[in-house]
Design a protein around this nucleic acid. Structure first.
Lengths: 213, 213
DNA sequence: CAAAAACCAGACCAACTGGTCAAGTTTTGG
DNA sequence: CCAAAACTTGACCAGTTGGTCTGGTTTTTG
Protein backbone atom coordinates (compact mmCIF):
# COMPACT_ATOMS: atom_id res chain seq x y z
CA UNK A 1 0.00 0.00 0.00
CA UNK A 2 2.22 2.78 -1.20
CA UNK A 3 0.19 5.88 -0.71
CA UNK A 4 3.02 8.40 -1.09
CA UNK A 5 1.61 11.90 -1.44
CA UNK A 6 -1.53 10.85 -3.30
CA UNK A 7 -3.39 9.07 -0.59
CA UNK A 8 -6.70 9.58 -2.33
CA UNK A 9 -5.85 7.31 -5.24
CA UNK A 10 -5.91 4.23 -3.06
CA UNK A 11 -8.98 5.06 -1.02
CA UNK A 12 -12.03 3.06 -1.83
CA UNK A 13 -13.95 6.28 -2.35
CA UNK A 14 -11.78 7.69 -5.12
CA UNK A 15 -11.55 4.34 -6.80
CA UNK A 16 -15.32 4.11 -6.99
CA UNK A 17 -15.57 7.72 -8.06
CA UNK A 18 -13.21 6.91 -10.91
CA UNK A 19 -15.15 3.83 -11.95
CA UNK A 20 -18.36 5.83 -11.96
CA UNK A 21 -16.86 8.63 -14.02
CA UNK A 22 -15.59 6.18 -16.62
CA UNK A 23 -18.97 4.50 -16.84
CA UNK A 24 -20.73 7.84 -17.05
CA UNK A 25 -18.45 9.01 -19.85
CA UNK A 26 -19.38 5.95 -21.86
CA UNK A 27 -23.10 6.19 -21.21
CA UNK A 28 -23.45 9.95 -21.72
CA UNK A 29 -21.47 9.71 -24.96
CA UNK A 30 -23.74 7.02 -26.30
CA UNK A 31 -27.16 8.25 -25.15
CA UNK A 32 -26.81 11.93 -24.33
CA UNK A 33 -27.66 13.47 -20.99
CA UNK A 34 -31.40 12.89 -21.04
CA UNK A 35 -31.12 9.45 -22.58
CA UNK A 36 -28.70 8.17 -19.97
CA UNK A 37 -30.07 6.21 -17.00
CA UNK A 38 -28.36 6.41 -13.65
CA UNK A 39 -29.10 2.71 -13.35
CA UNK A 40 -27.11 1.97 -16.50
CA UNK A 41 -24.13 3.94 -15.24
CA UNK A 42 -24.32 1.96 -12.03
CA UNK A 43 -24.55 -1.33 -13.91
CA UNK A 44 -21.53 -0.47 -16.01
CA UNK A 45 -19.58 0.54 -12.92
CA UNK A 46 -20.75 -2.65 -11.20
CA UNK A 47 -22.28 -0.79 -8.29
CA UNK A 48 -25.84 -0.41 -7.04
CA UNK A 49 -27.60 2.71 -8.21
CA UNK A 50 -27.78 4.11 -4.69
CA UNK A 51 -24.01 4.11 -4.55
CA UNK A 52 -23.73 6.33 -7.59
CA UNK A 53 -26.06 8.83 -5.95
CA UNK A 54 -23.97 8.57 -2.79
CA UNK A 55 -20.79 9.74 -4.50
CA UNK A 56 -22.41 12.34 -6.71
CA UNK A 57 -25.35 14.23 -5.31
CA UNK A 58 -27.44 13.83 -8.42
CA UNK A 59 -27.30 12.93 -12.08
CA UNK A 60 -26.62 16.52 -13.06
CA UNK A 61 -23.78 16.77 -10.55
CA UNK A 62 -22.15 13.71 -12.03
CA UNK A 63 -22.54 15.11 -15.53
CA UNK A 64 -21.02 18.45 -14.54
CA UNK A 65 -18.08 16.78 -12.82
CA UNK A 66 -17.49 14.72 -15.94
CA UNK A 67 -17.73 17.72 -18.21
CA UNK A 68 -15.19 19.61 -16.13
CA UNK A 69 -12.77 16.72 -16.28
CA UNK A 70 -13.19 16.49 -20.03
CA UNK A 71 -12.55 20.18 -20.58
CA UNK A 72 -9.25 19.90 -18.72
CA UNK A 73 -8.03 17.43 -21.35
CA UNK A 74 -8.45 19.81 -24.25
CA UNK A 75 -5.03 21.45 -23.95
CA UNK A 76 -1.92 20.79 -25.98
CA UNK A 77 1.48 21.91 -27.15
CA UNK A 78 0.13 24.67 -29.37
CA UNK A 79 -0.78 26.52 -26.18
CA UNK A 80 2.76 27.80 -25.65
CA UNK A 81 3.78 28.43 -29.26
CA UNK A 82 5.23 31.87 -30.01
CA UNK A 83 5.92 34.03 -33.04
CA UNK A 84 9.47 32.65 -33.15
CA UNK A 85 8.38 29.06 -33.67
CA UNK A 86 8.04 27.29 -36.99
CA UNK A 87 4.35 27.13 -37.95
CA UNK A 88 4.79 23.90 -39.89
CA UNK A 89 6.21 22.08 -36.88
CA UNK A 90 3.72 23.54 -34.42
CA UNK A 91 0.64 22.97 -36.57
CA UNK A 92 1.65 19.45 -37.54
CA UNK A 93 2.19 18.56 -33.87
CA UNK A 94 -1.10 20.19 -32.93
CA UNK A 95 -3.05 18.22 -35.51
CA UNK A 96 -1.28 15.01 -34.52
CA UNK A 97 -2.08 15.60 -30.87
CA UNK A 98 -5.73 16.33 -31.58
CA UNK A 99 -6.04 13.22 -33.71
CA UNK A 100 -4.48 11.08 -30.99
CA UNK A 101 -6.99 12.41 -28.49
CA UNK A 102 -9.84 11.84 -30.92
CA UNK A 103 -8.80 8.20 -31.05
CA UNK A 104 -7.97 7.58 -27.42
CA UNK A 105 -10.68 9.65 -25.80
CA UNK A 106 -13.49 9.39 -28.32
CA UNK A 107 -16.16 9.08 -25.67
CA UNK A 108 -15.00 12.28 -23.99
CA UNK A 109 -15.02 13.97 -27.35
CA UNK A 110 -18.58 12.87 -27.96
CA UNK A 111 -19.79 14.14 -24.61
CA UNK A 112 -18.25 17.49 -25.42
CA UNK A 113 -19.80 17.50 -28.88
CA UNK A 114 -23.24 16.72 -27.51
CA UNK A 115 -22.94 19.54 -25.03
CA UNK A 116 -22.08 22.01 -27.79
CA UNK A 117 -24.78 20.79 -30.15
CA UNK A 118 -27.32 21.28 -27.39
CA UNK A 119 -26.27 24.90 -27.14
CA UNK A 120 -23.61 24.47 -24.44
CA UNK A 121 -26.00 25.23 -21.56
CA UNK A 122 -23.56 23.87 -18.97
CA UNK A 123 -20.33 25.59 -19.95
CA UNK A 124 -19.85 28.22 -17.32
CA UNK A 125 -18.53 31.69 -17.95
CA UNK A 126 -15.12 30.81 -16.53
CA UNK A 127 -14.51 28.24 -19.22
CA UNK A 128 -15.90 30.54 -21.85
CA UNK A 129 -13.60 33.41 -20.95
CA UNK A 130 -10.63 31.09 -20.68
CA UNK A 131 -11.46 29.66 -24.07
CA UNK A 132 -11.79 33.09 -25.67
CA UNK A 133 -8.47 34.19 -24.24
CA UNK A 134 -6.78 31.06 -25.54
CA UNK A 135 -8.25 31.75 -28.96
CA UNK A 136 -7.15 35.38 -28.98
CA UNK A 137 -3.60 34.38 -28.11
CA UNK A 138 -3.41 31.74 -30.84
CA UNK A 139 -4.87 34.09 -33.42
CA UNK A 140 -2.16 36.62 -32.62
CA UNK A 141 0.61 34.05 -33.03
CA UNK A 142 -0.85 32.98 -36.36
CA UNK A 143 -1.08 36.59 -37.53
CA UNK A 144 2.56 37.21 -36.68
CA UNK A 145 3.57 34.09 -38.60
CA UNK A 146 1.68 35.43 -41.59
CA UNK A 147 3.20 38.89 -41.20
CA UNK A 148 6.65 37.33 -41.22
CA UNK A 149 5.79 35.52 -44.43
CA UNK A 150 6.16 32.15 -42.74
CA UNK A 151 2.79 31.02 -44.02
CA UNK A 152 0.01 32.05 -46.34
CA UNK A 153 -2.35 34.77 -45.15
CA UNK A 154 -5.63 33.17 -44.11
CA UNK A 155 -8.22 34.03 -41.53
CA UNK A 156 -6.70 32.32 -38.46
CA UNK A 157 -10.02 31.76 -36.74
CA UNK A 158 -11.39 29.70 -39.58
CA UNK A 159 -8.13 27.79 -39.83
CA UNK A 160 -8.49 26.72 -36.20
CA UNK A 161 -12.13 25.82 -36.72
CA UNK A 162 -11.16 23.64 -39.67
CA UNK A 163 -8.54 21.80 -37.64
CA UNK A 164 -10.93 21.18 -34.76
CA UNK A 165 -13.69 20.09 -37.10
CA UNK A 166 -11.66 17.49 -38.90
CA UNK A 167 -10.05 15.96 -35.82
CA UNK A 168 -13.29 15.92 -33.87
CA UNK A 169 -15.00 14.25 -36.81
CA UNK A 170 -12.94 11.10 -36.40
CA UNK A 171 -14.20 10.70 -32.86
CA UNK A 172 -17.79 11.84 -33.19
CA UNK A 173 -18.65 10.35 -36.57
CA UNK A 174 -16.83 7.07 -36.05
CA UNK A 175 -20.05 5.15 -36.67
CA UNK A 176 -20.44 6.65 -40.14
CA UNK A 177 -16.79 6.17 -41.00
CA UNK A 178 -16.90 2.54 -39.88
CA UNK A 179 -19.93 2.02 -42.07
CA UNK A 180 -18.29 3.53 -45.14
CA UNK A 181 -14.91 1.88 -44.70
CA UNK A 182 -16.47 -1.47 -43.87
CA UNK A 183 -14.53 -1.82 -40.64
CA UNK A 184 -13.58 0.32 -37.64
CA UNK A 185 -10.53 2.53 -37.98
CA UNK A 186 -7.56 1.03 -36.17
CA UNK A 187 -4.19 2.53 -35.35
CA UNK A 188 -2.81 2.32 -38.91
CA UNK A 189 -5.91 3.95 -40.39
CA UNK A 190 -5.66 6.76 -37.86
CA UNK A 191 -2.03 7.23 -38.75
CA UNK A 192 -2.88 7.46 -42.44
CA UNK A 193 -5.75 9.87 -41.80
CA UNK A 194 -3.48 12.01 -39.66
CA UNK A 195 -0.78 12.17 -42.32
CA UNK A 196 -3.38 13.00 -44.95
CA UNK A 197 -4.85 15.75 -42.82
CA UNK A 198 -1.47 17.29 -41.97
CA UNK A 199 -0.54 17.25 -45.65
CA UNK A 200 -3.84 18.82 -46.65
CA UNK A 201 -3.86 21.59 -44.04
CA UNK A 202 -0.18 22.48 -44.18
CA UNK A 203 -0.16 22.59 -47.95
CA UNK A 204 -3.32 24.68 -47.79
CA UNK A 205 -1.43 27.10 -45.54
CA UNK A 206 1.48 27.28 -47.95
CA UNK A 207 3.70 25.20 -45.69
CA UNK A 208 5.82 22.12 -46.27
CA UNK A 209 5.33 19.08 -44.07
CA UNK A 210 8.37 18.78 -41.76
CA UNK A 211 10.53 15.76 -42.52
CA UNK A 212 10.49 14.57 -38.97
CA UNK A 213 6.78 13.89 -39.19
CA UNK B 1 -57.68 27.08 -53.67
CA UNK B 2 -55.32 26.09 -56.41
CA UNK B 3 -54.59 22.46 -55.81
CA UNK B 4 -52.97 21.67 -59.17
CA UNK B 5 -51.37 18.28 -59.10
CA UNK B 6 -50.27 18.48 -55.49
CA UNK B 7 -53.57 18.25 -53.72
CA UNK B 8 -51.93 17.11 -50.53
CA UNK B 9 -50.14 20.39 -49.95
CA UNK B 10 -53.38 22.20 -49.31
CA UNK B 11 -55.06 19.59 -47.18
CA UNK B 12 -55.25 20.39 -43.52
CA UNK B 13 -53.56 17.12 -42.75
CA UNK B 14 -50.37 17.68 -44.68
CA UNK B 15 -50.15 21.23 -43.43
CA UNK B 16 -50.22 20.03 -39.86
CA UNK B 17 -47.82 17.24 -40.64
CA UNK B 18 -45.45 19.83 -42.00
CA UNK B 19 -45.81 22.07 -38.97
CA UNK B 20 -45.13 19.12 -36.68
CA UNK B 21 -42.07 18.02 -38.62
CA UNK B 22 -40.60 21.51 -38.48
CA UNK B 23 -41.22 21.72 -34.74
CA UNK B 24 -39.79 18.25 -34.23
CA UNK B 25 -36.66 19.12 -36.18
CA UNK B 26 -36.05 22.07 -33.90
CA UNK B 27 -36.71 20.18 -30.68
CA UNK B 28 -34.79 17.03 -31.55
CA UNK B 29 -31.81 19.12 -32.67
CA UNK B 30 -31.74 21.01 -29.40
CA UNK B 31 -32.47 18.24 -26.91
CA UNK B 32 -31.75 14.94 -28.63
CA UNK B 33 -34.25 12.14 -29.02
CA UNK B 34 -34.59 11.19 -25.37
CA UNK B 35 -34.52 14.78 -24.17
CA UNK B 36 -37.31 15.90 -26.45
CA UNK B 37 -40.86 16.01 -25.08
CA UNK B 38 -43.79 15.33 -27.37
CA UNK B 39 -45.57 18.09 -25.49
CA UNK B 40 -42.89 20.60 -26.46
CA UNK B 41 -43.13 19.64 -30.11
CA UNK B 42 -46.89 20.14 -29.88
CA UNK B 43 -46.45 23.51 -28.19
CA UNK B 44 -44.04 24.68 -30.87
CA UNK B 45 -46.41 23.48 -33.59
CA UNK B 46 -49.31 25.16 -31.77
CA UNK B 47 -51.30 21.97 -31.55
CA UNK B 48 -52.47 19.83 -28.66
CA UNK B 49 -50.23 16.91 -27.85
CA UNK B 50 -52.89 14.40 -28.82
CA UNK B 51 -52.83 15.81 -32.32
CA UNK B 52 -49.17 15.08 -32.76
CA UNK B 53 -49.80 11.46 -31.78
CA UNK B 54 -52.69 11.42 -34.20
CA UNK B 55 -50.54 12.24 -37.22
CA UNK B 56 -47.57 10.16 -36.18
CA UNK B 57 -48.22 6.91 -34.40
CA UNK B 58 -45.64 7.54 -31.73
CA UNK B 59 -42.61 9.63 -30.84
CA UNK B 60 -40.28 7.18 -32.51
CA UNK B 61 -42.36 7.18 -35.69
CA UNK B 62 -42.13 10.95 -35.86
CA UNK B 63 -38.39 10.81 -35.33
CA UNK B 64 -37.92 8.21 -38.05
CA UNK B 65 -40.03 10.19 -40.50
CA UNK B 66 -37.96 13.26 -39.75
CA UNK B 67 -34.70 11.39 -40.14
CA UNK B 68 -35.75 10.05 -43.50
CA UNK B 69 -36.66 13.51 -44.72
CA UNK B 70 -33.32 14.85 -43.54
CA UNK B 71 -31.35 12.15 -45.31
CA UNK B 72 -33.02 13.02 -48.59
CA UNK B 73 -31.53 16.52 -48.37
CA UNK B 74 -27.94 15.35 -48.25
CA UNK B 75 -27.45 15.18 -52.02
CA UNK B 76 -25.74 17.66 -54.27
CA UNK B 77 -24.09 18.44 -57.58
CA UNK B 78 -21.03 16.31 -56.87
CA UNK B 79 -23.27 13.27 -57.26
CA UNK B 80 -23.10 13.39 -61.05
CA UNK B 81 -19.50 14.51 -61.54
CA UNK B 82 -17.41 12.40 -63.93
CA UNK B 83 -13.75 11.88 -64.72
CA UNK B 84 -14.05 14.49 -67.48
CA UNK B 85 -15.02 17.31 -65.16
CA UNK B 86 -12.67 19.83 -63.60
CA UNK B 87 -12.01 18.85 -59.97
CA UNK B 88 -11.45 22.46 -58.90
CA UNK B 89 -14.87 23.50 -60.15
CA UNK B 90 -16.66 20.45 -58.81
CA UNK B 91 -15.05 20.47 -55.38
CA UNK B 92 -15.50 24.21 -54.92
CA UNK B 93 -19.17 23.89 -55.80
CA UNK B 94 -19.54 20.89 -53.50
CA UNK B 95 -18.03 22.73 -50.56
CA UNK B 96 -20.12 25.81 -51.25
CA UNK B 97 -23.27 23.71 -51.41
CA UNK B 98 -22.49 21.91 -48.16
CA UNK B 99 -21.77 25.18 -46.41
CA UNK B 100 -25.03 26.67 -47.62
CA UNK B 101 -26.90 23.69 -46.26
CA UNK B 102 -25.03 23.92 -42.97
CA UNK B 103 -26.29 27.46 -42.64
CA UNK B 104 -29.82 27.06 -43.89
CA UNK B 105 -30.61 23.67 -42.41
CA UNK B 106 -28.51 23.67 -39.28
CA UNK B 107 -31.19 21.97 -37.20
CA UNK B 108 -31.43 19.11 -39.69
CA UNK B 109 -27.67 18.82 -39.62
CA UNK B 110 -27.69 18.59 -35.85
CA UNK B 111 -30.32 15.87 -35.80
CA UNK B 112 -28.20 13.89 -38.23
CA UNK B 113 -25.07 14.47 -36.15
CA UNK B 114 -26.80 13.33 -32.97
CA UNK B 115 -27.95 10.18 -34.69
CA UNK B 116 -24.41 9.36 -35.81
CA UNK B 117 -22.83 10.16 -32.45
CA UNK B 118 -25.29 7.81 -30.82
CA UNK B 119 -24.04 5.05 -33.09
CA UNK B 120 -26.57 5.50 -35.91
CA UNK B 121 -29.03 2.93 -34.50
CA UNK B 122 -31.85 4.14 -36.76
CA UNK B 123 -30.14 4.27 -40.14
CA UNK B 124 -31.50 1.31 -41.99
CA UNK B 125 -29.53 -0.91 -44.27
CA UNK B 126 -31.03 0.67 -47.37
CA UNK B 127 -29.54 4.02 -46.54
CA UNK B 128 -26.28 2.43 -45.56
CA UNK B 129 -25.88 0.57 -48.84
CA UNK B 130 -26.92 3.61 -50.82
CA UNK B 131 -24.41 5.69 -48.93
CA UNK B 132 -21.60 3.20 -49.51
CA UNK B 133 -22.36 3.07 -53.22
CA UNK B 134 -22.32 6.85 -53.45
CA UNK B 135 -18.97 6.88 -51.68
CA UNK B 136 -17.49 4.21 -53.95
CA UNK B 137 -18.53 6.17 -57.03
CA UNK B 138 -17.05 9.42 -55.77
CA UNK B 139 -13.82 7.74 -54.76
CA UNK B 140 -13.45 6.37 -58.28
CA UNK B 141 -13.96 9.77 -59.85
CA UNK B 142 -11.39 11.27 -57.51
CA UNK B 143 -8.90 8.52 -58.33
CA UNK B 144 -9.30 9.11 -62.04
CA UNK B 145 -8.71 12.84 -61.55
CA UNK B 146 -5.52 12.00 -59.71
CA UNK B 147 -4.45 9.50 -62.36
CA UNK B 148 -4.91 12.20 -65.00
CA UNK B 149 -2.69 14.51 -62.99
CA UNK B 150 -5.55 16.93 -62.48
CA UNK B 151 -4.95 17.02 -58.74
CA UNK B 152 -2.53 15.86 -56.11
CA UNK B 153 -2.66 12.20 -55.10
CA UNK B 154 -4.39 11.92 -51.74
CA UNK B 155 -6.54 9.28 -50.14
CA UNK B 156 -9.96 10.27 -51.53
CA UNK B 157 -11.89 8.86 -48.59
CA UNK B 158 -10.14 11.07 -46.08
CA UNK B 159 -10.54 14.05 -48.38
CA UNK B 160 -14.29 13.57 -48.37
CA UNK B 161 -14.31 13.10 -44.60
CA UNK B 162 -12.42 16.37 -44.20
CA UNK B 163 -14.89 18.26 -46.33
CA UNK B 164 -17.87 16.84 -44.48
CA UNK B 165 -16.27 17.50 -41.13
CA UNK B 166 -15.55 21.15 -41.75
CA UNK B 167 -18.91 22.00 -43.28
CA UNK B 168 -20.85 20.11 -40.64
CA UNK B 169 -18.87 21.87 -37.95
CA UNK B 170 -20.40 25.23 -38.82
CA UNK B 171 -23.87 23.84 -38.20
CA UNK B 172 -23.26 21.58 -35.22
CA UNK B 173 -20.78 23.70 -33.29
CA UNK B 174 -22.46 27.03 -33.93
CA UNK B 175 -22.76 27.61 -30.19
CA UNK B 176 -19.01 27.38 -29.70
CA UNK B 177 -18.26 29.52 -32.72
CA UNK B 178 -20.70 32.17 -31.58
CA UNK B 179 -19.02 32.19 -28.20
CA UNK B 180 -15.55 32.60 -29.66
CA UNK B 181 -16.47 35.17 -32.27
CA UNK B 182 -18.59 37.15 -29.84
CA UNK B 183 -21.61 37.06 -32.12
CA UNK B 184 -23.52 34.59 -34.29
CA UNK B 185 -22.21 34.03 -37.79
CA UNK B 186 -24.34 35.85 -40.34
CA UNK B 187 -24.37 35.59 -44.11
CA UNK B 188 -21.12 37.55 -44.64
CA UNK B 189 -19.24 35.44 -42.07
CA UNK B 190 -20.45 32.28 -43.74
CA UNK B 191 -19.30 33.60 -47.09
CA UNK B 192 -15.87 34.33 -45.68
CA UNK B 193 -15.62 30.95 -44.00
CA UNK B 194 -16.66 29.27 -47.24
CA UNK B 195 -14.04 31.11 -49.28
CA UNK B 196 -11.40 30.29 -46.69
CA UNK B 197 -12.35 26.63 -46.68
CA UNK B 198 -12.38 26.35 -50.47
CA UNK B 199 -8.99 28.04 -50.63
CA UNK B 200 -7.58 25.73 -47.96
CA UNK B 201 -8.88 22.48 -49.38
CA UNK B 202 -8.28 23.20 -53.04
CA UNK B 203 -4.75 24.41 -52.38
CA UNK B 204 -4.20 21.35 -50.23
CA UNK B 205 -5.26 19.24 -53.23
CA UNK B 206 -2.85 21.08 -55.51
CA UNK B 207 -5.66 22.93 -57.25
CA UNK B 208 -6.25 26.58 -58.03
CA UNK B 209 -9.47 28.23 -56.96
CA UNK B 210 -11.59 28.87 -60.07
CA UNK B 211 -12.00 32.55 -60.87
CA UNK B 212 -15.72 32.30 -61.13
CA UNK B 213 -15.95 31.54 -57.43
C1' DC C 1 -77.37 16.25 -48.32
C1' DA C 2 -76.14 12.42 -45.60
C1' DA C 3 -72.70 9.45 -44.19
C1' DA C 4 -68.15 8.31 -43.93
C1' DA C 5 -63.72 9.74 -43.31
C1' DA C 6 -60.59 12.88 -41.30
C1' DC C 7 -59.56 15.69 -37.59
C1' DC C 8 -59.64 17.61 -32.70
C1' DA C 9 -58.91 17.46 -27.76
C1' DG C 10 -59.82 16.73 -22.60
C1' DA C 11 -59.37 13.13 -19.21
C1' DC C 12 -56.81 9.55 -17.86
C1' DC C 13 -53.18 5.88 -16.98
C1' DA C 14 -49.29 2.69 -16.59
C1' DA C 15 -44.43 2.63 -16.74
C1' DC C 16 -40.34 4.57 -15.81
C1' DT C 17 -36.83 7.16 -13.31
C1' DG C 18 -34.29 10.31 -10.36
C1' DG C 19 -33.88 10.62 -5.86
C1' DT C 20 -34.79 9.64 -0.54
C1' DC C 21 -34.64 6.92 3.78
C1' DA C 22 -33.27 4.07 7.14
C1' DA C 23 -30.80 0.33 8.59
C1' DG C 24 -26.97 -1.87 8.13
C1' DT C 25 -21.47 -3.06 7.35
C1' DT C 26 -16.75 -1.74 6.74
C1' DT C 27 -12.91 1.25 7.30
C1' DT C 28 -10.32 4.74 9.63
C1' DG C 29 -8.11 7.24 13.28
C1' DG C 30 -6.99 8.36 17.91
C1' DC D 1 -9.89 -1.30 20.80
C1' DC D 2 -13.68 1.52 20.07
C1' DA D 3 -16.25 5.16 18.23
C1' DA D 4 -16.88 7.98 14.43
C1' DA D 5 -16.69 8.44 9.73
C1' DA D 6 -17.19 6.42 5.35
C1' DC D 7 -19.45 3.28 2.67
C1' DT D 8 -23.32 -0.10 1.10
C1' DT D 9 -27.91 -1.36 -0.17
C1' DG D 10 -32.86 -2.77 -0.49
C1' DA D 11 -37.34 -0.66 -0.17
C1' DC D 12 -39.84 2.95 -1.47
C1' DC D 13 -41.90 7.28 -3.50
C1' DA D 14 -43.39 11.31 -6.23
C1' DG D 15 -43.14 13.52 -10.57
C1' DT D 16 -42.91 13.02 -15.38
C1' DT D 17 -44.09 11.32 -19.88
C1' DG D 18 -45.46 8.59 -23.86
C1' DG D 19 -49.48 6.93 -25.17
C1' DT D 20 -54.77 5.48 -25.01
C1' DC D 21 -59.76 6.15 -24.91
C1' DT D 22 -63.78 8.28 -25.80
C1' DG D 23 -66.72 11.50 -27.55
C1' DG D 24 -67.06 15.14 -30.25
C1' DT D 25 -66.54 18.54 -34.67
C1' DT D 26 -65.23 19.49 -39.30
C1' DT D 27 -64.30 18.20 -43.97
C1' DT D 28 -64.76 15.33 -47.84
C1' DT D 29 -67.29 12.49 -51.01
C1' DG D 30 -70.70 9.73 -53.46
Amino acid sequence: MKQSEYQKDDSIGSMNRHKIMAAAEYEFALHGYAGTRVQHIADRAQLPKTNVLYYFKCKEGLYLALLEEILSLWNGQFDEATAEDDPAVILAAYIRDKMTKARQRSAASKVFALEIINGAPNLNTFFREQHCQWMAGRVQVLYSWMAQGKMKALNPEYLLFHIWATCQHYADFAAQITQLKGKPMGEPEFAEATDNLIELILTGCGLTVPERF
